[in-house]
Design a protein around this nucleic acid. Structure first.
Length: 832
RNA sequence: GCCGCAGUGGUGAAAUUGGUAGACACGCUAGACUUAGGAUCUAGUGCUUCGGCGUGGGGGUUCAAGUCCCUCCUGCGGCACCA
């Protein structure tokens, strides 16, 4: 029957209708376990090409490992809380839970089941379902118990469009990651997770991320950003306290001509209280009002001198034993200590600041041009000058020496600082996991007892959405409760949790998704974690991956799991574009996966999405490309189906390969199989597609050459062996193109499930030929190619080489200096 | 500014890690078959003055470099008044 992708799909669907071939029992220790995971989707109701790429990648890897005999888990679920659901629900006046439910159904039964993705649906989970978010709440309570969930009043990132607080990770260039609005700083009391307690563990763990995409490792590094330096104490006698500054350049300490603190620094308020000054007050207020963007964009240094003095730790030895305390908004409040020492001579920012406000510039590191008026800060190395007892010392050495000296006198110490901030987890939105906390007038903030979990979201009715905004505050039945501690009337917390918390532990839950007494059974998780192959976009390398790692380290510390990094191999796939642009409705360049599959079949789309471009890079969709894959599949199906139908009476058996007349074919076949295995092992999926083309080229050529269908003689006798090779080919290629291959395997070989086959055995004997090609080079340039016996002696090679006309011509009239023979590969003649 | 990734035919790219550069495709050129071709098949396709020359530029190591070292240029991504 001629190729028809629709009837083929129907057949494959019927094979798997009543079975879950992709089920794996996670309570048992996996045999060579393999966890292949594509980042779970947000159920928007529309699967797009990005999903096709991600899940085809996780699927091909899962299928490959399965053929290699591993116990593979390849689950799927829904990241269903969050703003888009809520916004869409408000817009369409549908309850968010019902809207989400509809979308999940649509995606599950109409979009994610048509491309042959081998999901184990038994493991399905949904983060907005109470049986899931019960455990998100439990996790929050565990954090709280450990002292890692806390409230504090702080300047938070406020998105004026979405009317919610954002995590630092959700602010990109000062703008909200979703709405794109300029983020304001607001002083609010908020729930935080103390991820900063894990800075050192998260930083040290980076060295274990050997199989992560290098870009993703870089993102982790930049985000945590460990810096070693020195904290130096400057006493402020008037206030009887000290200002601690953080610096990586303690060697320049003797060049300090001012101290600059951030407007948010606690001392700023104290100074204002004691010395009311309109100038200082206006400056501080103006700075606090400025958005992060404004502060960043305005590179011109601003500041104000408070007139308050502080003492230099080496006051006896330096030019300025006493310096003024300034307030400047170029100092960042939440990095280091929120205060810096101003060394104009050796820091470009301080130099600018000093020039603008007429501060003195004292050189303390000598530069090759000698002391004199500097036109810019000198930031290179040199020997110290004007630095008391440290004069003449190389500044690198001085970093250590000065720190040690400060430490000895209790005026400072070596320290490390991180850029990572605590994780703000509260959101002022309805469609999220409720925070299981109660506010009681008598007892304060009290956790909801574990036995009362989950704290369920109220079912919002259409009426609740009349004003266009959903907020838990507006649900009295939800808000009003009793205090778990004293029993008096109390109010529930109405913030919900950042959805990144929901997605920080879903990979664990897949392994025990029906557990209603524990978040998961540790045994299951230890059996199958860490994730061996995690596929997703680089855009999740900062937020999601750092939270995922954090929660893993936390659960490890609490003894729930026995590993401390969640992902072995993080594979960052590129985007699917069209015409060089991201697919988008407004641009009108969207290819809908279901349409493409309807037209060309899932085999074609799978093969195409993996072909030509490495999966890490962006790929440009071209209709001519998928058409070519469709034609390829049709051609192969028809040729192979025809062969198999005509040789029904011949049994497929390996037989004695040595008797098979097509020895070149066998060599090519096994060489390709070896390459294909390598491609799959190394995640070179586009090469895998190229290997399938190569397989096909060899097979169709052989089919044509041997004329199995016409012959009755010797060639016909070998059809059984050839049939066996075809079976192996269909099995291997089935990783990428599982539809037509499975139909042929089922109908002509009686194979029950493509997924449970084994990867073809590579016949090493065929990979070594009796002859080899030896390249003859002169001075490393190829001159001739000799096909010779594998065991040929060097003397014989030499003889053959010098008989070659091209070699003779090139060598003529030159001195032969040296001859090098690399056995079976190269014979190089060095001439002068 | 710092960190990471990359630069190879007309195009996407390969080169299993120092040993025949351009596998496999797309496109293109010729031919065959066909009522037709945006189908299929066959052959060709890095450049070339046919000596050679070719992996962003320039140095270097080596018998041998796309691959290793130094240096510069360009593009992409991340961080960034981070002290």
């Amino acid at each position: 029957m001629a190729y028809d992708h629709k009837s083929i799909k129907d057949k494959v669907d019927s094979y798997h209708k009543d079975s879950n071939d992709f089920y794996v029992d996670t309570s048992k220790e996996g045999k060579n376990k393999f966890y292949s995971l594509g980042m779970f989707p947000y159920p928007s109701g529309n699967a797009h090409m990005g999903h096709v790429r991600v899940y085809t990648l996780s699927d091909v890897k899962a299928r490959y490992k399965k053929l290699k005999g591993c116990d593979v888990i390849h689950p799927m679920g829904w990241d269903s809380f969050g703003l888009p659901a809520e916004n869409a629900a408000i817009k369409h006046k549908v309850r968010p839970d019902l809207w989400t439910e509809e979308n999940i159904k649509k995606m599950k039964y109409e979009q994610l089941n048509i491309a042959g993705w081998s999901f184990d649906w038994d493991k399905e989970l949904n983060t907005s379902s109470p049986d899931y978010y019960k455990w998100t709440q439990w996790l929050f309570l565990e954090m709280h118990k450990a002292g890692l969930a806390y409230r504090k009043e702080d300047y938070v990132n406020w998105c004026p469009v979405d009317k919610t607080v954002l995590a630092n990770e959700q602010v990109i260039d000062g703008r909200s990651w979703r709405a794109g609005a300029i983020v304001e700083k607001r002083l609010m009391e908020q729930w935080f997770f103390k991820i900063t307690d894990y800075c050192d563990k998260l930083w040290d763990g980076i060295s274990k991320l050997k199989n992560w995409a290098p870009e993703a490792v870089s993102v982790q590094k930049n985000w945590i950003n460990k810096n070693t330096g020195t904290v130096i104490h400057f006493n402020v006698p008037e206030f009887d306290e000290k200002i601690e500054v953080f610096t990586t350049r303690p060697d320049t300490l003797f060049g300090v001509t001012a101290l600059v603190i951030a407007p948010e620094h606690p001392l700023a308020a104290k100074i204002l209280e004691k010395h009311p000054s309109k100038e200082v007050e206006d400056y501080v207020n103006a700075s606090l009002k400025k958005s992060a963007v404004e502060r960043m964009q305005n590179k011109e240094k601003t500041g104000v001198n408070t007139g308050v003095k502080c003492r230099h730790p080496f006051e006896g030895d330096c030019k300025y034993p006493e310096v003024d305390v300034w307030i400047g908004d170029y100092v960042i409040a939440d990095y280091g200590t929120g205060a810096v020492m101003c060394v104009p001579a050796h820091d470009t920012r301080d130099f600018e600041f000093a020039k603008k406000f007429g501060l003195d510039i004292i050189e303390v590191v000598s530069n090759p041009e000698g002391e004199g008026e500097l036109s810019e800060a000198y930031t290179e190395d040199g020997d110290l000058i004007n630095s008391g007892e440290f004069n003449g010392m190389n500044n690198r050495k001085a970093i250590k020496a000065i720190t040690e000296s400060l430490d000895k006198n209790n005026k400072g110490e070596a320290t490390t600082t991180y850029q990572l901030k605590d994780w703000s987890v509260g959101r002022q939105r309805f469609w999220g996991c409720p925070i299981p906390m109660v506010h009681c007038d008598s007892c304060g903030i009290v956790p909801v007892p574990e036995s009362e979990l989950p704290v369920e979201l109220p079912k919002a009715s259409d009426a609740d959405m009349e004003d266009g905004v959903l907020n838990l505050k507006n649900f009295p039945d939800f808000v009003n409760t009793t205090c778990p501690s004293c029993g008096k009337a109390a109010k529930r917390e109405t913030d919900t949790l950042d959805t990144f918390l929901c997605s920080s532990w879903y990979a664990f839950r897949y392994l025990d998704n029906k557990n209603d007494t524990n978040i998961f059974d540790s045994k299951n998780v230890n059996n199958f974690m860490p994730v061996d192959f995690y596929v997703g976009g680089l855009e999740h390398a900062a937020q999601h991956m750092i939270y995922f790692r954090f929660i893993t380290k936390f659960l490890n510390d609490r003894g729930y799991i026995n590993f401390d990094e969640p992902v072995d191999h993080f594979f960052c796939n590129g985007m699917v574009k069209m015409g060089g642009h991201k697919m988008s409705k407004s641009r009108g360049n969207v290819v809908v996966p279901t349409d493409a599959i309807d037209k060309y079949g899932a085999d074609a789309i799978r093969m195409y999405i993996l072909s030509d471009t490495p999966a890490e890079l962006d790929v440009d969709w071209e209709d001519s490309g998928i058409k070519a894959k469709y034609d390829f599949i049709k051609k192969n199906y028809n040729a192979i189906e025809n062969f198999l139908a005509e040789t029904k009476d011949i049994k497929a058996e390996k037989g004695n390969l040595k008797d098979y007349p097509g020895q070149d074919f066998l060599y090519n076949y096994y060489a390709t199989l070896k390459e294909y295995e390598y491609s799959m092992e190394q995640n070179l999926f586009h090469k895998g597609v190229a290997n399938i083309h190569a397989f096909s080229n060899h097979i169709l050529k052989e089919l044509n050459k041997r004329k199995f269908l016409e012959a009755s003689g010797a060639d016909r006798d070998y059809a059984g062996t050839f049939k066996f090779i075809i079976k192996e080919f269909l099995t291997s290629a089935g990783l990428i193109i599982p539809f037509f291959t499975e139909v042929l395997l089922k109908e002509h070989y009686g194979v029950e499930s493509l997924y449970n086959q084994t990867f073809g055995e590579i016949e090493a004997a065929y990979l070594t030929k009796s002859t080899v090609n030896v390249v003859v080079q002169i001075n490393g340039k190829k001159k001739a190619l000799l096909e010779v016996d594998k065991e040929i002696s060097e003397a014989d090679i030499e003889k053959l080489a010098f008989e070659n006309a091209d070699v003779m011509r090139t060598v003529e009239g030159k001195n032969i200096v040296k001859k090098i023979y690399v056995k079976g590969k190269i014979y190089n003649i060095v001439v002068k």
